[in-house]
Amino acid sequence: MTEQMGRFKHQSMQDSQSIVRYLTALKDGFENGALVFSTNGKRLVLKPQGLVNLEVEAKRKGEGIKLSLKFRWTEEEPATEEGGQPLLIETYKSK
């Protein structure tokens, strides 16, 4: 089984054509229900379920522009990469 990791980070320089590839990869992940991030064979699999808090922020400071997209959600248990596991349904415990 592939090793899991808790964090993924990547930084690169793109232009408006090449950046679309990244957005498409994220879009595909959301559509398939799993976003898979990998680093040297280790994987971080995120499965957005339920409600996703989406924050879009755009700002201009002089010549510098920043556009950030932030997605936040909670997962009941750590996601595994195996897609075909039986689905466990649990009752929510009151906090």
Partner: peptide, 12 residues
Amino acid sequence: DTGQLGIGDLPL
């Protein structure tokens, strides 16, 4: 020296 990364099917 980041190593081989990927986002879904997109290899980095």
